[in-house]
Structure formats: C-alpha cells, structure tokens
Simulated assay, not measured.
Amino acid sequence: MPLAQGDAAPDFTLPGSGGATVALADLIGHKIVLYFYPKDDTSGCTLEAQGFNALLGAFAEADARVIGISPDPVKSHDKFRAKYDLAFPLASDEAKAMLEAYGVWVEKSMYGKTYMGVERTTMLLDRAGRIARVWPKVKVPGHAEEVLEAARALP
C-alpha cells in the first residue's frame, strides 16, 4: 500500500555519494525532500537532478534537505554527481528495501514487457519525519519548483 500524507516515513540508512551515510534519523528536525528516480545519467533523471540542484539555495533557505535515491550503486552516484556538479547527496538502495518500503519499487511496462523499476516519485517530509506531500508519477518540467513552493509553505 502506498504511503500517504500524514504517514510516518519509514526509517532508512543508506550508503551515499562521497562515502557518506544518508539516514532519516540524521535529517529529522529539517524538512526533507526525498526524490526517487530510476537511473543515473539518463535524460529525465539528469534534468530532474539539475532542477533540484539549481534551486538548492532556495531549498536551504526553506530549511529543506534534498536527497536523491535510486537503486544505482554509490560508484555510479559519484560519477553522476561529478559530471553534473550536483551539490546534494544521492543515496543508493541496491537492495531496494527502502524503495519497497516507500512504495516506489513497482511493476512497470514498456513495449509490452513488464519489469520492476522505480516509479519517479517525490515525497516531502515535515520536521518530525511525517509525509507532508507525495508527488507520484512525476513529470520533470517544473517539478523542482513545485516541490520548493510546498517546502516553503510547510511550517
């Protein structure tokens, strides 16, 4: 069952880019933007990352931390961050446990074939770690701006 507004965000600790660890417990007290994306260095995922990166200063002013999460390995995240000069952490969930807990590891289909993959989704968490807003099946253009407005409006 997908997570919804008001639900407590499932706890997680994941390896992150640059050798860091990304853990929900370390982010509590701030607004948290978790954006789930399918794959590093693909066109839509690159545009989405660049959108969040361009607004990172505004997210910081709103006391919101931005974290990108995909099943790609940390080594891939490090290359992706370096190539596009991304200034926020990317977390790796190769085991897909967090992706499943957040309901974004789903069956997808393309060209008549079904497969498991990440449904591009963003979740905004409040300072207590509860889900304040969910954007399922994200369309990239204008998305980072919409998330920023929601983060600014959240106390």
Rank of each mutant, 00 (worst) to 15 (best):
G19H: 03
Y84F: 08
Q5D: 11
A20V: 01
E145Q: 12
G57L: 15
V134W: 15
T42L: 06
P38C: 09
A60L: 01
L99V: 02
K108I: 03
M110V: 10
D7A: 10
H30Y: 06
M110A: 02
W135N: 02
G57Y: 05
Q5F: 04
D26K: 04
V147F: 10
A151Q: 05
K96Q: 12
K113A: 12
E145A: 10
V134E: 14
P89V: 11
R81Y: 03
G57E: 15
I28P: 00
L14C: 06
I67V: 15
H30F: 05
R127A: 12
D93K: 02
A132L: 12
P71A: 11
M123E: 14
P2V: 05
A9T: 03
F12T: 04
T13L: 13
S70G: 07
R152K: 14
D11N: 12
R127I: 02
E48L: 06
A25K: 11
Q50P: 03
G44E: 15
F36E: 15
H77T: 00
R152P: 05
R152W: 11
F59D: 15
S76A: 12
D85H: 12
K139N: 15
M110E: 10
K79Y: 04
L99T: 00
V118H: 06
G103E: 07
H30M: 09
R130N: 13
H77E: 15
L3E: 10
Q50K: 15
I67Y: 11
A60N: 11
A62I: 07
Q50M: 09
G129H: 05
L125K: 11
G44T: 10
V140C: 13
D40L: 06
V134C: 11
K31V: 00
P73L: 05
A23R: 00
